[in-house]
Design a protein around this nucleic acid. Structure first.
Length: 420
RNA sequence: GUGGGCGUAGCUCAGCUGGUAGAGCGCCGCGUUGUGGUCGCGGAUGUCGCGGGUUCGAGUCCCGUCGCUCACCCCA
């Protein structure tokens, strides 16, 4: 057999049968709670003006500074493949004036995102997310709703072992003061060069260093959570209260830091313990200044991005299963005249809403029945000379072998009544 | 971007100290005339990731390269 001369680009995730069904189940399972909560779908481009991301996500972030796919298009414009979803949705909201109507604007989206990182299990250069954004309200109940939508998504897919980490990153009133405190604290520590550099760029990010000696050193570091202004503190307390009301379990994680600069106040992350190094299965938070930064009204928003790839890995790690929808009927035409009838029958049953496939090519009866078996169809139906002549059909229930008398006229009715 | 492991049929893998490839599963067919799953028999498919090198001879040794994987980093 000829070896394929092309390979997929490095680090991309592909989902093909039979795994692709699981991918769809996860995507739909994560988006369903958003739809039920009144979020409306937004389809936005996978590439944008590069400056949208440098402005929105933040130039100092790794995501922007070293992981973006950036290129010039034929008109000499600098374009980047989207590394995350929020700023594109915000841009579209501003551009199309969605925020001129009733607030909050509630949107959901799903699709591929791109980051040029070294691939690893659960970390791909093209990966998939389901996300939501709720724009234009600072109500802490909205924060809780956003978190609950993610939480119920994971739950609905059968996940039980994930953890929700939660904290508040403060706002423009209290964060700068806290930052100074932290910088002063870090200045007294014997940091290595790389860490000191990080500290200069974004001191908060030093806090979630995983190395044991670092967490020892940072044991007594000042925490944002203890230096929130009154408004932020009240807001956070209220978010927690709402989550308690909803019986959503969370862990306060005061050292959690996210990789995107726009987060303020409520910030959260879903972590799965069975996933190894890439354990984040989703995360998000509030972004106070983002919309104004991108040229819109000064409205706050909150949203999340949930990783479809990682959620799928997490479900597999928990030995979870998916419900699959099987074919209702597999038709086996005996000879070529019967194939015309078989295709007509298949077409009309499909129109009636049934899932129908049939055997193609010159397969013998035995081979075609084998295909019927492999297809997973609930029923099979042989169509040949005698069926065409008499109009008497016999529908076979594959799991039991039972033959059920049928006619062309009552076939769809029968199948609809008996489908499982 | 840094470091470790790996790369043999569609899949999972075996191939000792170098002598031009195997198993199981899967796939296709047959087991007498129009009904699958079990069983039996038969069959197809590999430039042993790719490119160089050493050697009379390399899947097996060396170098490079591509990809996967694990950790760091980062994060979904």
């Amino acid at each position: 057999m000829a070896r394929p001369s092309f390979q997929a680009p490095k680090g991309v995730a592909e989902y093909l049968p039979p795994d692709s069904a699981d991918f769809l189940a996860v995507r739909d399972g994560l988006s369903e709670p958003a739809i039920r909560a009144g979020y409306l779908y937004a389809e936005v481009p996978v590439f944008e003006d590069t400056t949208l991301f440098t402005r929105g996500v933040g130039e100092s972030t790794d995501v922007v500074s070293k992981e973006m796919y950036t290129f010039d298009d034929r008109g000499g414009r600098s374009i980047s493949l989207r590394p995350e979803g929020t700023v594109g949705v915000i841009r579209a909201t501003i551009e199309h004036g969605l925020d001129r109507g009733q607030l909050p604007v509630k949107l959901w989206y799903s699709g591929p995102f791109f980051r040029a990182e070294r691939p690893q299990q659960g970390r791909y250069r093209q990966f998939f997310q389901v996300g939501i954004e709720a724009i234009g309200s600072e109500d802490p109940a909205l924060d809780a709703e956003v978190i609950s939508v993610a939480y119920r998504g994971y739950q609905g897919l059968g996940l039980t072992q994930f953890r929700l980490d939660l904290t508040s990153l403060g706002d423009k009133n209290c964060r700068p003061q806290y930052r100074e405190l932290l910088v002063a604290f870090l200045a007294d520590l014997p940091l290595d060069d790389a860490t000191r550099k990080r500290a200069a760029l974004n001191p908060l990010r030093v806090l979630d260093d995983k190395r044991p000696e670092m967490s020892e050193m940072l044991k007594d570091a000042p925490l944002m959570k203890n230096h929130l202004c009154k408004e932020c503190d009240d807001h956070f307390a209220s978010v927690c209260q709402h989550l308690d009301d909803l019986k959503i379990a969370y862990t306060i994680a005061p050292k959690m830091v996210r990789g995107l600069d726009y987060y303020t106040r409520t910030t959260f992350e879903f972590v799965h313990p069975l996933l190894g190094a890439q354990s984040g299965i989703g995360g998000g938070g509030r972004y106070d200044g983002l919309m104004a930064e991108l040229g819109g009204q000064d409205l706050s928003g909150i949203g999340f991005g949930l990783g479809i790839d990682r959620t799928l890995l997490a479900i597999r790690a928990e030995q979870g299963t998916f419900k699959t929808n099987h074919l209702d009927l597999f038709i086996v035409p005996m000879e070529s005249e019967a194939r015309r009838a078989a295709l007509i029958v298949a077409d009309s049953l499909r129109t009636a809403g049934l899932l129908v496939d049939l055997s193609f090519g010159d397969r013998g009866l035995k081979g075609a029945m084998k295909a019927a078996d492999k297809s997973g169809a609930q029923f099979s139906l042989v169509i040949g000379e005698s069926e065409l002549a008499s109009g008497a059909l016999s529908l076979k229930e594959m799991s039991t072998g039972e033959l059920i008398p049928a006619t062309m006229e009552n076939l769809s009715e029968l199948l609809l009544a008996r489908r499982t």
